[in-house]
Simulated scan of single mutants.
Amino acid sequence: MSITKLNPWNWFKKESEHERTLPIKQTEQGVRGYASPIDRFHADFDRMVDSMFSDFGMPSPRQLFNKVDPGSGKTPIKPNVDVYGTDKEYVIEAELPGIEEKDLSIELKDDVLILSAEMKHEEKTEEKGYYRVERSYGSFRRVLNVPEDADKDNITARLNKGILKVTMPRTKAVESNSRKIAIES
C-alpha cells in the first residue's frame, strides 16, 4: 500500500467537487443584490488560490480555516474529521455535538462516503405576559474518498456522545516494505 492513501488531501479530494454540484448556488452578491469591485476581487482571488491548491491535491486554505465566503454572510459548517488507518481497518471520526442519530445520514456512492446532517431546534416559552420562540438550524456535508482496499460491504458506523465513528475493514493486509538500516560508525 502506498502511504499517499492516508494523506488527508487524498481522502477529501472530491469534497470540493461535490460542493460545486450542490443544488443551492450561493452568489457573491449577498443581501443587497450587488457586489462591490473589492468583493469581486476577493472572490476571484480566493477562487484562484483554491484552484492552485486543488491542482496539487491539497485542501484550500478556506477549507482549513472555515473562512466566510465574501458576500454570503455565512460560515460553512464543517465538523472536524479525523482519518487514520491500521493494518486491519480505516477509521473516520467526526465531531458532531448536538446531532442525533435521526438527523444524520451516511451514504456510500461508488468510491465516495458522504456524511451529512440537518438539525432543527425550536423552543417556545410562554410565561407571565411574554412569549418567546428560539429557533436554531444548520446542516453540513462532508465527502470522503474511500480507498480501493476498503471493504465497502462491511462499513459500520456508531454515534456515541457526539462522536461519529465510521469503520471500514481492509480487504487485504498491508504489506510492509521496511527493513532495518545499520548505522555505520
Rank of each mutant, 00 (worst) to 15 (best):
residue 77 I to P: 01
residue 9 W to F: 08
residue 35 A to M: 07
residue 112 V to P: 01
residue 142 R to Y: 01
residue 176 S to M: 07
residue 151 D to R: 03
residue 67 K to R: 09
residue 125 T to C: 05
residue 4 T to D: 13
residue 43 A to I: 14
residue 3 I to K: 09
residue 37 P to V: 04
residue 19 E to S: 10
residue 105 S to N: 09
residue 23 P to N: 06
residue 145 N to L: 07
residue 98 G to D: 12
residue 5 K to A: 05
residue 125 T to K: 13
residue 105 S to F: 02
residue 37 P to S: 10
residue 21 T to Q: 15
residue 168 M to H: 04
residue 117 A to K: 01
residue 146 V to E: 02
residue 64 L to C: 12
residue 21 T to I: 14
residue 179 R to M: 14
residue 6 L to M: 06
residue 153 D to F: 00
residue 107 E to A: 14
residue 27 T to V: 04
residue 7 N to G: 02
residue 34 Y to G: 13
residue 147 P to R: 09
residue 65 F to N: 13
residue 103 D to N: 13
residue 12 F to V: 13
residue 144 L to M: 11
residue 143 V to T: 10
residue 138 G to A: 15
residue 146 V to C: 02
residue 39 D to H: 04
residue 50 D to C: 08
residue 134 E to V: 15
residue 106 I to H: 08
residue 44 D to F: 05
residue 66 N to R: 08
residue 90 Y to D: 01
residue 71 G to E: 00
residue 45 F to C: 10
residue 65 F to I: 12
residue 126 E to K: 08
residue 24 I to H: 13
residue 84 Y to I: 00
residue 10 N to S: 11
residue 97 P to H: 01
residue 146 V to I: 10
residue 11 W to E: 01
residue 12 F to C: 09
residue 24 I to P: 00
residue 100 E to H: 07
residue 49 V to C: 06
residue 136 S to M: 09
residue 172 K to V: 10
residue 27 T to S: 12
residue 116 S to M: 02
residue 106 I to D: 09
residue 109 K to Q: 15
residue 28 E to V: 12
residue 56 F to H: 04
residue 62 R to F: 07
residue 55 D to V: 03
residue 177 N to C: 08
residue 113 L to P: 00
residue 139 S to K: 12
residue 33 G to V: 08
residue 151 D to H: 04
residue 183 I to D: 05
residue 26 Q to S: 14
residue 108 L to P: 06
residue 9 W to Q: 07
residue 129 G to T: 09
residue 58 M to F: 06
residue 87 D to S: 15
residue 30 G to D: 05
residue 174 V to E: 14
residue 53 F to D: 01
residue 71 G to S: 03
residue 73 G to A: 11
residue 64 L to G: 09
residue 131 Y to R: 11
residue 164 L to E: 00
residue 145 N to Q: 09
residue 19 E to L: 11
residue 74 K to F: 14
residue 67 K to D: 08
residue 163 I to P: 03
residue 134 E to Q: 15
residue 86 T to G: 05
residue 30 G to M: 04
residue 48 M to V: 09
residue 139 S to E: 13
residue 85 G to P: 00
residue 86 T to W: 03
residue 25 K to H: 05
residue 29 Q to M: 14
residue 174 V to L: 12
residue 96 L to S: 02
residue 145 N to D: 13
residue 143 V to K: 00
residue 39 D to V: 02
residue 143 V to P: 00
residue 77 I to T: 10
residue 35 A to Q: 06
residue 40 R to L: 11
residue 173 A to L: 00
residue 34 Y to Q: 14
residue 97 P to G: 02
residue 108 L to T: 08
residue 41 F to R: 10
residue 90 Y to E: 00
residue 49 V to A: 05
residue 163 I to W: 04
residue 64 L to M: 13
residue 95 E to L: 07
residue 140 F to R: 03
residue 177 N to R: 11
residue 158 R to V: 07
residue 112 V to G: 00
residue 88 K to E: 06
